[in-house]
Simulated scan of single mutants.
Amino acid sequence: MFVTLRITAVPDHLRGYLSRFLVEYGTGLYVGNVSRRIVDSLWSRVTDAAGEGEIVLVTSEATNEQGFKVRLHQGRGKEVVDMDGFELLRSIPEGAYYDSEPFPD
């Protein structure tokens, strides 16, 4: 499974851990090809250790139209929404309340 991971403002030890499985091509940008089990393990470990850091994980996914899946941790005013099978990133205005509907009236 192809993986792209972007981390921002995370502890240094997390960078070392990620370099065991993925290659860092830029500051905080990791890319690799690992099994689904490793991806799930990485996601769990990274989100547990991230603190206030932001994490975006993009993995290949053959079961949807886009061919990839996005996971977001500490999105700082952003969230991933599913729009008829397409995963899009939506900005959330500060203090806004949204229910589970993709775009409230």
Rank of each mutant, 00 (worst) to 15 (best):
V23F: 12
E65M: 04
L5S: 02
S60L: 08
V80F: 11
G51E: 03
A49R: 13
L89R: 03
V70T: 15
D40P: 00
G51S: 07
F103V: 12
E65C: 03
P104I: 07
G77W: 09
R90F: 06
G51K: 13
V23S: 14
R37Y: 06
S35I: 09
R6H: 08
S60C: 05
V80Y: 13
I55H: 00
N33E: 14
Q66K: 12
F2D: 12
D84N: 08
V58H: 08
L42R: 10
V56W: 01
G32P: 10
G51P: 08
I92D: 02
L88F: 02
E65G: 09
L5P: 00
Y98P: 01
V3S: 04
I92R: 10
S19A: 15
Q66V: 08
R37A: 14
A9I: 01
V70C: 05
D12L: 13
E61S: 11
R71M: 11
V46H: 03
Y30P: 04
Y98H: 10
A62Y: 04
T8C: 02
L18G: 04
W43H: 01
L29R: 14
V23M: 10
P102E: 13
G32Q: 00
F103W: 15
M1V: 11
I92E: 05
T8R: 08
V46T: 10
V56E: 00
A50D: 02
R20L: 12
T27S: 15
L89F: 12
G67V: 09
D82A: 03
S44D: 07
R15F: 06
V34Y: 06
D99Q: 10
R71S: 07
E61N: 15
L89A: 04
L88Q: 10
F68R: 05
T27H: 07
T63E: 14
H73W: 15
F86Q: 13
A50P: 02
V10A: 03
P102H: 11
P11I: 12
V39T: 13
F68M: 02
S60E: 05
Y97L: 14
D12T: 03
G26C: 09
R76H: 06
N33Y: 11
P104G: 14
T63F: 02
G67T: 05
L5W: 04
G85E: 14
S44P: 00
V31L: 12
L89P: 07
R6A: 03
L88N: 11
S41P: 00
H13D: 15
V3N: 01
G67D: 09
D99M: 09
L22M: 05
D82N: 15
E52Y: 02
D40A: 07
F68P: 04
R6G: 01
G67W: 04
G28S: 04
V56H: 00
I7V: 15
Y30R: 08
